[in-house]
Amino acid sequence: MTAEPLLQVRRLSKLYDIRQGLFSRLVGHVRAVDDVSFDIGTSEVLGLAGESGSGKTTIGRSVLRLVEPTSGSIRFEGKEVTAFDRPQLRDFRRSAQIVFQDPYASIDPTMSVGDAIAEPLRVQGLASRSEIPDRVEKLLTDVALPADFARRRPSDLSGGQRQRVVIARALAVGPRFIVADEPVSALDVSIQAQIISLLEDLKSRLGLAMLFISHDLAVMEYLSDRIAVVYLGKLMEIGPSRDVVATPKHPYTEALISAVPDPSSRRKRIILKGDVPSPVSPPSGCVFRTRCPYALPDCAAAVPATREVRPGHFKACIRDDIL
């Protein structure tokens, strides 16, 4: 990895206010993201795994400042993103883009496919009126769609084709970094592989760095160089994807991996008890301890520090005698 990572996230937190009653009195906070730190190198894909309520989507949005982080630092190419003013933020959007989960909701139904793809170019003033048709055609080719799709309506397209359009939009500004928020979860099984292959191709062809958010660990392992696992807004484990999947060091990662159904093997599964606790009042100490099969009384005492257990492989768990 280079000396300066492309993206450096330090102690990122996002709290949402809970307001109640007639006068919207503040009654508490939801800790959507709590003290999360990670780096993403140039052309590196970091997988962000977690279940619903883990804060993975909020992390993705915060990194791009689509939601305002409550605290923490986000440095992109050495510049502090949280301190950007409006024009700087607009410039930042040329370097960092996002692909959303639902390709049906993320394209304006009143726009043609061509207009949807051209929108970033127009907003950013990256192409003159006469250049736009050529640029759109080039972008459609990049995502393996026929050039005549520019005139089509989004409603004429299948889910997979729409997701290609969304990717083409994100590529229009020539970004170096993309947040891909569950980009294949809404697609049919036979279509998912097409989009995964496209993302893989873009990564190697354009040298894109990516934050790949998913609940599907198999897809994530396939596409990511490293994997970060989050639970209740906290980082549990981060490391090279091969290592995290083969030899997870955190009990939650172990359970998560064992829960992934696999068509060709019947592995022994660890079934976690209960539901994810409410992020309004998370457990003290280690947030996972209430469901952890290895929990000790000490786990409730303090929030476990993130420690390096192997070069580049970190975990937030006090026990070293397991896994």
Binding site: L66, R94, F100, A105, S106, D108, E119, R169, A172
Partner: peptide, 21 residues
């Protein structure tokens, strides 16, 4: 809607969003 968020994500301001979306 997500498409308005998508528009914000490419750098569009309120005037553009009202006009285009």
């Amino acid at each position: 809607s997500v498409f308005v968020e998508a528009s914000r994500a490419v750098g569009a301001g309120p005037a553009w969003i009202i006009h285009a979306h």
